[in-house]
Amino acid sequence: MTLGDWHDRWERLMARYQPGRERAIERMIDLVASHCDGPAPRVLDLGGGTGTLCARLLERLPAAEITLVDLDPVMLTIAGASLPPSVRVVRADLRDPDWVTRLPSGGYDAVLAVMALHYLPPGRLTELYAELAGLVRAGGLVATVDDMPDEDAVATTSDGGEDPWSTWWEQAAADPVLGPAVVERARLFGDAPSAEWHPPAAWHLRALGAGPVEKAVVAWRNGIQAAVVAFKPR
């Protein structure tokens, strides 16, 4: 099985576990295209995984200068094989404040995170939001999409039965190319479960709005999923 096949299988898996992800990616791209000046925005994709957002953004804005950041060696292996050389793929741990030193430079037009930051604890996520605001140029934006279950939001549930998530990872471990990356992933993350911390949108508004940005807003909501966006003053 090629890495391209693994990318496609991952997309199908995400479509099952995160049914709103596809729409969120398209809305993020619309946001960049409508807000950023010129055809070549500088974009930072946090927790970019296999590079889906990057690839879709390049379809819309081929001249965009994109940097993808992730820590998972399995995701980075697939992204490195799937994305064009113009996309910079950076391995960095967002839990460590020194992660910014691994970036090529600051001055981004947009910093985006799609279903990527829920594993960070409250204190670290608050710090990260301030760091992101510092990476964005005047007039740029920071946007994050995740599950933000406000009281009036309606949750969606996946069907029961088999566990395709475990199956995907078991088969990846047996793959001759991805297998070593799965071993390294286990070394990095151990058996510790993800924090899976999903505060309401109001929490993200306060945390992101505390940085050097204009008032953060909820740009859209789809059930329990919402997008919070903050713009840096010009």
Rank of each mutant, 00 (worst) to 15 (best):
L3S: 10
G4I: 08
W6A: 15
H7M: 13
R12V: 12
L13P: 01
A15C: 04
G20F: 11
R21A: 11
R21V: 06
E22K: 10
E22L: 06
A24Y: 07
A24T: 10
M28F: 12
A33W: 01
D37W: 06
A40W: 12
P41R: 09
P41A: 08
L44R: 11
L44Q: 13
G49M: 04
T52C: 02
T52E: 14
L53C: 08
L53Q: 02
C54W: 04
C54N: 07
A55K: 07
A55M: 03
R56I: 05
L57I: 09
L58Y: 06
R60G: 03
A63D: 14
A64T: 14
E65S: 13
T67V: 15
L68E: 07
L68K: 04
L68H: 05
D72T: 11
P73A: 05
P73M: 08
V74S: 04
L76K: 08
G80W: 09
S82Y: 13
S82N: 05
P84V: 10
P84L: 11
P85I: 08
V87F: 06
V87A: 06
R88Y: 00
V89W: 04
D93H: 02
D93L: 00
R95C: 07
R95F: 05
R95Y: 00
W99G: 03
V100Y: 00
R102Y: 07
R102A: 15
L103H: 02
G106D: 09
A110D: 04
L112C: 01
A113R: 02
M115Q: 00
H118V: 00
Y119R: 04
P122M: 06
P122Q: 09
P122L: 07
L125E: 00
L125V: 07
L125A: 10
E127A: 12
L128G: 00
Y129N: 01
Y129R: 01
E131H: 08
L135G: 02
L135T: 01
R137K: 08
A138Y: 00
A138V: 03
G139C: 09
G139P: 06
G140A: 00
A143Y: 04
A143R: 02
D146T: 09
P149Y: 03
D150Y: 02
E151R: 14
E151C: 02
T156S: 15
T156R: 14
T157K: 10
T157D: 10
S166K: 13
S166Y: 11
T167P: 05
T167Y: 08
W168Q: 12
W169I: 12
A173I: 06
G179M: 06
P180F: 02
V182A: 08
V183M: 12
E184G: 03
R185Y: 08
A186G: 13
L188D: 05
A192R: 13
P193V: 11
P193N: 09
E196M: 08
H198E: 14
P199I: 09
P200V: 11
P200S: 12
A202E: 15
L208G: 09
L208N: 07
G209Q: 05
G211C: 06
P212C: 07
V213K: 03
E214R: 13
V218R: 09
V218G: 03
V218A: 01
W220T: 05
R221Q: 15
N222W: 14
Q225K: 07
A226V: 02
A230Y: 05
A230I: 01
P233R: 13
P233H: 13
R234W: 14
